[in-house]
Write a protein that binds this DNA or RNA. Structure first.
Lengths: 341, 341
DNA sequence: GTGAAAGCGCTAACAG
DNA sequence: CTGTTAGCGCTTTCAC
């Protein structure tokens, strides 16, 4: 049997309550007693029993809030899915998880919800933030007040948040570049159809893509990135225009949405086999086009983990686990081909 | 607050004990009472509180045994790592996990350990089995006696084991084939350096590889597989021989060990850039060679999950969770390139 | 067949 | 500052 608080109490000649106060730094205890108790606990290799902890404190400490941006993108949906699964698991331990979605980058809404969380006694918050000074300050204040905060999706590095869980977009772009280089061994022209110039995620992907290709595959010419604003029709149109200028196009990289528009044009001109296509986001249309061979690779950075892992990390941490996550938790970059759908 | 047994008891006009007997099919209860209680529970959407369950039964129900083959391969080591991490987590819930390693395929040893587990009151067993009739019978008997069993690494399909957690080697081979096809767009000769003809895992990989290539990439010629018996020197030698016959070799697929021997020869003849190499097992030498560009892709099917997930699945199941795993749980096939090391 | 009661390891509220 | 006590939700005896 594992070592319990009672054993420590007996050895230290105090009561269980005192051990609790010592080990959890609750104050109201003589420092030397606390020291002694901590010593004994360490020597015995004491690990608090999570089940007991969860059960006793019940809904007191195991309250977690999740604030996501509201959007219908597959990524956010997947994050939400992960968060919901984690919610279920936490609630089976008697905890309580609230999930809220806000519109766009409305910081005021976020702050309102956070205040609500605090008043409701939430001890941990998972947050998909936008870059805002007021929000940063609030985060720091909450952390000082003993509330755990984890950022997901996009980070706020210079805050006291516990860690960040999300994608390494630069790395994602690099992988895409490496793959593109490999499947176009004889060199040629490659086009990038991005979303917009001010979406940091796609900009990073684009940078990574270009860096990898230009460094390791000099025989490939990368055209200036075009922007389709995540629109299928625009993306298709951009491709058509490009094909008129460079009918010998060899590859297309899409760090943003609009994939199925591009695939449609490729099919229209029967270029599926001739032009290599690498995209991100493993979902609906992309799966289909991957299967049919129109898309060659889909890169997937599992957004599910963003929702699931972040909540579970807070949960564990609230249970008294020291927390095993690094400051930056990047999702695995999984490459999907026709063969591992 | 979630619904508790007490609430059900109150509604049914019985005691908590009776509810427990009904919901867990412990017998000693009038069938119609049991029926009624189950009804109420379902209506209320009752979910037993895991923490409470773990706490109350304590070391009684949460005993799990893990039997691994003893071997110094990276795969087994990784499985072991996963199992150890799961052990830690389970024990933090007051459970008890034993991990044993046996030599090769010594079935007698396995049976001995299993008997020991049973006598020690283990309620779940994770088993890396060898194909043996006696073992199969034992598994079925244990399952009948209410002990959960999960097979990992290699399966014993026609038994009552709960599920299998491991690799889908055929799929792994197919992915390799697809990649090889993509990076050799102009066709050419491809060689397979396998382990031995009676290792089912590598045989399946080889089959998947050949199936994918011959179906989708007819311009590629696949040479008859050669066997290196997982030896670096032999593998290198086989390559050298092949190079004399077919100096225009375009690609090498290695479903088994011996990779670094092959890489050495490639470097010796300065063929790193000319011949594409795809291997499995993401570890030491392979990582290095991938980084240097000698190996183009490493396919990884995370063995860590075998150890971790299997134990956690049993744990959850013993906690009363219905269990969310399918009969076959295949690990993700992750493709590693120079860019996502 | 069923109910009552003790206890798992911990926290929290209240005495002292 | 410290000890005592009453639970958290469930299983497991032991009576009836």
């Amino acid at each position: 049997m594992a070592v319990t608080m009672q054993q420590i109490a007996d050895l230290a000649g105090v009561s269980r309550g005192t051990v609790d106060r010592a080990l959890n730094d609750r104050g109201r205890i003589r420092p030397e007693v606390a020291e002694k108790i901590k010593m004994i606990a360490k020597e015995l290799g004491y690990q608090p029993n999570i089940a007991a902890k969860a059960l006793s404190s019940g809904n007191q400490i195991l309250r977690i809030g999740v604030i996501l941006q509201y959007a219908d993108t597959p990524t956010i949906q997947t994050v939400l899915e992960g968060a919901k699964d984690a919610k279920q698991e936490v609630e089976r331990f008697g905890g309580r998880v609230m999930i809220d979605q806000i519109n766009g980058g409305d910081v005021r809404q976020v702050l309102d919800i956070m205040r609500g969380y605090k008043e409701a006694g939430m001890k941990g918050i998972v947050l998909m933030p936008s870059n805002d000074e007021m929000l940063k300050n609030t985060i720091d204040r909450y952390v000082d007040d003993g509330i755990e905060i984890i950022t997901i999706n996009s980070d706020l590095e210079d805050t006291k948040r516990r860690c960040f869980v999300g994608q390494d977009n630069y790395a994602g772009g690099r992988v895409a570049g490496g793959l593109m280089g490999e499947i176009i061994p004889d060199g040629g022209k490659v086009m990038i159809i991005s979303g917009s110039a001010d979406n940091t995620a796609t900009v990073k992907r684009t940078k990574g893509f270009m860096a990898e290709l230009s460094y390791h595959y000099p025989s490939i010419t990368i055209m200036e990135p075009r922007f389709a604003y995540d629109d299928n029709w625009v993306a298709g149109k951009l491709l058509e225009e490009q094909l008129e200028i460079t009918p010998d196009l060899k590859g297309i990289y899409m760090p943003a949405q609009g994939e199925s528009g591009v695939c449609k044009i490729l099919k229209k001109y029967e270029l599926e086999k001739k032009i290599k296509v690498i995209v991100h986001d493993y979902e609906g249309e992309n799966k289909k086009n991957l299967k049919e061979g129109v898309i060659n690779f889909v890169l997937r950075q599992d957004a599910y983990a963003q929702g699931y892992e972040s909540v579970m990390e807070i949960f564990h941490s609230l249970c008294g686990n020291p927390g095993h996550k690094e400051e930056f938790c990047y999702e695995d970059i999984v490459i999907k081909t026709r063969c591992n759908l």
